[in-house]
Amino acid sequence: MLTILRNRFLRVPDKLYIIIIAVVIIPLVIGAVIYFSGATQSPYKIAFISKEDAPPVKHELIQIEQMNERPAMSALVMGKYNAIVEAVEDQKYTVTTYKDESFKKTIEEYFETGKLPVNHTTAKRGIGTSILGVILLIALMQGVALTTFYPDDRNKSTFKRIMMSPLTSRQYLVAQGMFTFSCLFVPTYFVILVMKICFKINIGFGLGALTGLLIIATALATAFSLFMASVMNRNISLATSGISILTCLLAGCLFNYDSQSKWLDAVTNILPQKPFMTLSQGMEGGQTFSDFPWQIGYIVGWIIVLWFEGSLITKKKVQKGIY
């Protein structure tokens, strides 16, 4: 088993792009995410159309740009402005926006009374949770690229020869899993540490919590990629990317959403990413791992099931002599 693991690392120079992905690109993306989630954002950008009046009131949360003519609708669609406000008569304004009714009401009220309604802000997710959501997505997508030696071994019939030795397919997968896990975990963890310690960027977690959460995320990604590599023979990376993007979106890894449909909730609650997001949000709010036994248990359950399914399928295929 250790030989296999050593073999993985020795073969890394042959597949240099693995290093490029693991050591350069993943951390780069994560660094960018951390950097940009720290950037300040003015929540409301408004185009105010009026020939003479200055905008009635100023507010730090609202950025008003005054102009003589209506901007193009596409500027509104692209999000350059959140709303176009036009003065109709004294103290009366028409608001054009593609956002929901409550936003329109908020802006109307602001222009008419000069004050924002009390409950104008929506609940925001912490920066650490947003970062971990993206990390989970990238780890799930890139895990397969880091598992590439396994399908590679099968294509080159090396796997067949390895199976002739006393090594079992399960031990082989354990070694491969260790390799994938360390290639995912070490660079990611390193970047976040650098960000946290050298650049003093607030990640939202303590070191212990961060380590724990990252281990969970990368272990899930490892189990998933081993599973996918065992099940599929062709187009592994294509299928994995598709599945990862869809499930992460539905589980709310990239942004939070309220679904109005019960059956969709039932479907998304099955996904392991959902308890992970709950867990990390709770941790960021100051709770500890022991407050989420159910969530952790569920994710670990997924990891075990994916792992066992993967190794079972491989074992079956070996017994049937497919490789």
Partner: peptide, 18 residues
């Protein structure tokens, strides 16, 4: 993808313009 993204972000959009 269109279906999922559209569904997930439905509540951010409104008023029939877009």
């Amino acid at each position: 993808l269109i279906g999922v993204m559209g569904f997930v972000t439905q509540s951010f959009f409104g008023s029939g313009l877009l």
